[in-house]
Computed example of a mutant assay.
Amino acid sequence: MPAEALMALAGAGATALIGAMATDAWQGARGGIVRLFGRDNQGRGAVVAAQLDEDAALVGRADPAEEDHVREDLVPVWRRRLVVLLEEQPEAEEDLRGLVERVRGGLPDERRTWVQHNTARDNGTLFAVQGGSLHYHRAPGDGPSAPPRPERGEPEEGTERA
Rank of each mutant, 00 (worst) to 15 (best):
M1I: 08
A3C: 00
E4H: 11
A5M: 10
L6G: 04
M7A: 11
M7V: 06
M7N: 05
A8R: 07
L9R: 06
L9F: 10
L9W: 02
A10K: 04
G11R: 02
G11C: 06
T15A: 14
L17W: 03
A20K: 02
M21A: 13
M21I: 12
M21E: 07
A22F: 03
D24G: 15
D24F: 00
D24I: 03
Q27F: 09
R30M: 03
R30A: 04
I33R: 05
I33M: 11
G38E: 09
G38N: 10
R39I: 00
R39V: 01
D40C: 03
Q42F: 00
Q42T: 14
G43C: 04
G43I: 04
G43F: 08
G45T: 07
V47P: 01
V47E: 13
V48L: 03
L52S: 06
D53Q: 09
E54R: 15
E54S: 11
E54A: 13
E54V: 02
D55M: 01
D55N: 08
A56M: 04
A57L: 13
A57W: 02
A57H: 03
L58A: 09
L58E: 11
L58G: 00
R61D: 10
A62C: 03
A62N: 04
D63W: 09
P64Y: 09
E66F: 03
E67N: 02
D68R: 11
D68V: 14
V70H: 02
V70R: 04
R71G: 07
R71N: 10
R71A: 01
D73C: 00
L74R: 14
L74Y: 10
R80Y: 08
R80M: 08
R81M: 05
R81P: 00
L82C: 03
V83F: 04
V83C: 13
V83M: 15
V84I: 14
V84N: 15
V84Y: 12
E87W: 01
Q89A: 11
P90V: 07
D95E: 15
L96A: 11
L96T: 01
R97C: 11
L99T: 11
L99S: 10
V100R: 09
R102I: 01
R104E: 07
R104L: 10
R104F: 05
G106L: 05
P108M: 04
D109K: 06
D109M: 07
D109T: 14
R112K: 15
V115G: 03
H117S: 12
A120E: 13
A120I: 08
N123Y: 12
N123G: 15
L126D: 12
A128N: 15
A128V: 06
V129W: 03
Q130T: 13
G131F: 04
G131E: 04
L134F: 02
H135L: 10
H135I: 07
H135N: 14
Y136D: 01
Y136R: 07
Y136W: 03
H137Y: 09
H137R: 15
R138L: 10
A139T: 14
P140R: 15
P140D: 13
G141K: 07
D142T: 15
D142C: 05
P144M: 01
S145T: 13
A146W: 08
R149E: 14
P150R: 08
R152T: 14
G153A: 05
G153I: 10
E154Q: 12
E154M: 08
E157I: 11
T159F: 15
E160D: 10
